[in-house]
Design a protein around this nucleic acid. Structure first.
Length: 106
DNA sequence: AACCTGACTCGCC
DNA sequence: AGGCGAGCCAGGT
């Protein structure tokens, strides 16, 4: 089980209508210092359609500008379709949607 | 096989 | 308050 695989499993635990920060995913994968690596893993995203990478945002709720799949606007649209509210075009209402706890993977 | 380069976060100036 | 460096992994060159 590689680090990337644990990261993918953690991301899949985020329920629809909620978002998690890179740091939360990193913690669930076993080490919060992996926050950066989480970004790399999602960039690689080997299983689009199965891994809800659009539910991962920065700690302040900002959607990454480097989102490769159609841009930040596309990611925001996917989230809004799940009922996620925004402060502006790029910032999620973290007070409402951030998952309180993300279970550790294995 | 070494080196570079990314969707981040936190602590220390 | 804001900038800087470190920690961390995989894939391509």
């Amino acid at each position: 089980m590689t680090v990337f695989e644990r990261i993918y499993e953690a991301v899949q635990m985020i329920p629809a209508g909620s978002v998690a920060t890179y740091g939360q995913v990193a913690e669930a994968a076993g080490n919060r210092r992996l926050a950066r690596v989480v970004g790399y893993a999602l960039h690689a995203n080997p299983r689009p359609g199965q891994i809800p990478c659009h539910r991962v945002v920065k700690k302040d709720g900002e959607v990454s500008r480097a989102f490769a799949f159609g841009g930040a606007a596309r990611q925001a649209a996917l989230l809004r379709a799940e009922g996620v509210e925004f402060l502006d075009e790029t910032h999620v209402r973290m007070d409402l949607h951030r998952v309180s706890f993300l279970p550790m993977v294995h």
